[in-house]
Amino acid sequence: MKNAGTIVIVVVVGFVAFFGFPFYYNIGKANEAPKLKFDTPAILEWEKVNGKKECVEPKEFMRGEHMQMLNQWRDSVVRNADRVYVNSQGRSFTMSFQNTCMNCHSNKKDFCDKCHNYLGVKPYCWGCHIAPKEKQS
């Protein structure tokens, strides 16, 4: 009993089914990175006062570290009652999830969710913290 032919067919079908899955799953879907919007009233207000759009820390840092930062803010507020965050430029912010982050990023659907949905991340925060009313100009 030689069955090289059958076995190779099975292997090829297996490969096509499993590794090919991303290919046919993606067919017809545009390869587009999320476009984030920084045009909420609070950010525009900040721009008027400070001359440029800025986050708490530089953009590159925020991209990777925002979850760790939120975690530190939470620990600092809930455990040490310390609500003041001094950033790398020496500017102070009130450590508050809803009143600081979500005040500027009041367009959760066009900002946080855009990125998270693209990568399948589902932060569990919104079960307790209230999402901002969508605001953008």
Partner: peptide, 28 residues
């Protein structure tokens, strides 16, 4: 890892992610 390979991440994979991280230690 298939979340990097598919345009919209399928629900099965999101369920796997949340089960795999159910102890909710740290961030991420």
């Amino acid at each position: 890892h298939f979340r990097f390979f598919m345009q919209d991440v399928p629900t099965v994979i999101q369920i796997m992610e949340s089960l795999d991280s159910f102890l909710q230690i740290g961030a991420p």
